[in-house]
Design a protein around this nucleic acid. Structure first.
Length: 590
DNA sequence: TATCTGTTAG
């Protein structure tokens, strides 16, 4: 049979032929299709099989995934009876093809476009069959396109198919498509299920599409949908988290006006929003307006006070919640412990540990402030407790404790200890050891470690290089500075803002102010862009070298370079009374 | 539906 020798590739159109922006995979076989040019002459059909036989043949070919041959078999059915084959036969072809293990999007698109070439008009079943196939293939975008086609042909997609399409689009994070499906559903008076709406709105808000989430929400509201807080709370939260407390309030009040009753999570979002804006008074008023605030409500406001250094207020809120019968959880405690630890408030930390709390790895790292201040006792016994409790530890927890313990122990025995616990050291662990070498050993020994050690990741990183560069600069060891710079050049490591700042500090400390300024100018014109640490370093360098006038001029010009002086900049100036006096005088005169 | 930590270089 000659048509069986037609290669599939001839039937397949070129990929670049796009018919529709939504469903470009649906490509026409075009008028030059070899299906059209099939030799249908009598001589090639000596045996004339009947309709049933031909149909069965077509179905078998389709089931085996041979769509070209199946299409050819479909055309052969013309010979069986007048008016044959029909769209039902074509539907059967598609159905059988979907049962084959070779079903793919490209072939499905071919089957769709070929219908028009053959002059077949799809019926509802055709569309549903295509939708079933596209669903199987997970091609949600194409399924949306077919659904729209179906509507354009005046057929109504079922609730089930739209609902499943909505889920597919939402799960595959094609949120724009999901919104289109939802619009189709609303247009047909189909109301999606609550879990679907919650999931879609959640995903929209989490991906910075809060306005779209609002759009979806109000569309449903217009249809008389009665939303629960589970549906709209993600919107309130999203607005509050992005510092849009005014919008959140407006949204919150408009819902209240409509008679919707908010729950504690809705109010907690507002508390968070007020806190984010620094509106502590309003946050507290909001807290007091909630009939039954919970641990999370309190935790959020406590965190806010802690982050703003208002620890006493945080502690009194802790007492207040306990009095109300709300037991703080480990999250609440970790937040407070972190703040206390940064302030080195050892007694208060001790008091907290008298309570019934089960420390976890968050607790371990929250105490890093304490470690930095040298209060090792409480921290180490805590670490032992956490290890014993079987809490999940990670490399960062060990790194936090590493440097402090390094002083009294051999670093490599500590690393073995980590490994025994199943924690692999990382570059940060090694950089910490490197720092220990810099502080306690000679630069030669440090460089030897640097070169000979087996680094855990892809070798030493920029921080590693900066660690040794910084050490050489601090020691004002010009030969070593040069060696490190040569090493960096050899390894193809470029200086970043930290390295450049180290070099500037080195230059002004060895009274090479011009070299220091050269580095700064180079940074300004070629990068890396100076940071405020760089700026402040230069200020110190100028002042140290008694270039007070230059420091003053530099300070005045900071804004024109795009920098804003910070508290450190002002502190530097405070150390130079004469300069400050001049600044004050001039500001009075102007 | 909402809340938590931290390690290395200037």
């Amino acid at each position: 049979m000659i048509f069986f020798s037609v290669p599939l590739s001839i039937l397949r159109p070129k990929r670049s032929f796009r018919r529709n922006p939504f469903f470009y995979q649906f490509i026409s076989l075009s008028s030059s299709s070899s299906v059209q040019s099939l030799d249908m002459s009598e001589e090639n059909n000596l045996h004339c099989p009947d309709y049933a036989e031909l149909r069965s043949n077509m179905q078998n070919l389709a089931k085996s995934g041979a769509i070209t041959k199946a299409l050819q078999a479909f055309l052969l059915m013309r010979t069986a009876a007048p008016g044959k084959p029909t769209v039902y036969d074509y539907n059967s072809l598609i159905n059988c093809y979907l049962k084959s293990e070779y079903a793919c999007l490209h072939d499905l698109s071919t089957l769709y476009s070929e219908m028009k070439t053959l002059g077949l008009y799809p019926n509802a079943s055709t569309f549903n069959t295509f939708l079933k196939g596209l669903n199987l293939l997970g091609a949600s975008k194409s399924a949306l396109w077919v659904t729209i086609e179906m509507c354009n042909h005046a057929f109504t997609p079922s609730f089930t198919s739209l609902s499943s399409l909505l889920k597919k689009c939402s799960d595959s994070m094609d949120l724009k498509a999901a919104i289109s499906v939802l619009e189709l559903m609303i247009g047909l008076n189909y109301i999606p299920t609550e879990p679907q709406v919650i999931s879609l709105i959640n995903r929209l808000t989490k991906h910075g599409m809060t306005n779209k989430a609002c759009y979806v929400f109000f569309k449903l509201l217009d249809k008389g949908y009665f939303p629960t807080p589970y549906i709209y709370n993600p919107i309130i939260w999203s607005l509050c988290k992005s510092n849009e407390i005014n919008l959140a309030l407006a949204f919150f009040c408009s819902l209240k006006k409509k008679g919707l009753v908010h729950n504690v999570c809705s109010y907690t979002a507002l508390v968070h929003g007020f806190c984010e804006k620094g509106l502590f008074k309003e946050a507290l008023i909001c807290l007091n307006n909630i009939c039954y605030p919970n641990v999370r409500t309190y935790t959020i406001i406590i965190k806010c006070f802690c982050d703003n250094g208002r620890i006493q207020e945080a502690l009194s809120l802790l007492t207040q919640m306990e009095k109300r019968g709300l037991d703080p959880d480990i999250v609440t405690y970790n937040i407070i412990l972190r703040a206390l630890s940064n302030q080195n408030m050892v007694h208060e930390i001790f008091d907290l540990f008298q309570k019934d709390l089960s420390p976890d790895r968050y607790t371990a790292t929250a105490l890093s402030g304490l470690l930095k201040k040298g209060n090792l006792g409480i921290a180490h016994s805590l670490l032992r407790d956490i290890e014993k409790s079987g809490s999940d530890m990670d490399v960062a927890v060990y790194n936090v404790y590493f440097y402090r313990r390094f002083k009294s122990k051999d670093p490599f025995s500590l690393m073995n200890y980590m490994k025994k616990k199943g924690i692999e050291p990382n570059n940060i662990t090694y950089n910490t050891i490197l720092k220990g070498y810099c502080e306690r050993k000679t630069m030669d020994k440090t460089l030897e470690f640097f070169r000979t050690t087996e680094w855990p990741e892809k070798g030493p990183d920029l921080v590693s290089f900066n660690t040794i560069l910084s050490a050489a600069c601090k020691k004002r060891d010009s030969e070593m500075v040069e060696r490190v710079l040569d090493l960096m050049e050899h390894e193809g490591v470029k200086l970043n803002v930290v390295g450049c700042t180290c070099l500037m500090q080195y230059f002004y400390n060895v009274r090479k102010l011009k070299d220091c300024l050269d580095v700064f100018e180079h940074m300004m014109s070629h990068g890396p862009r100076p940071s405020m640490v760089t700026i402040n370093s230069l200020m110190i360098g100028l002042c140290k070298n008694r270039e007070l006038e230059a420091a003053y001029r530099f300070f005045c010009n900071l804004k024109s370079y795009g920098f804003s002086p910070d508290s450190k900049t002002y502190k530097i100036l405070e150390g130079y009374d004469d300069l400050v006096a001049k600044l004050q005088r001039e500001s009075f005169e102007s």
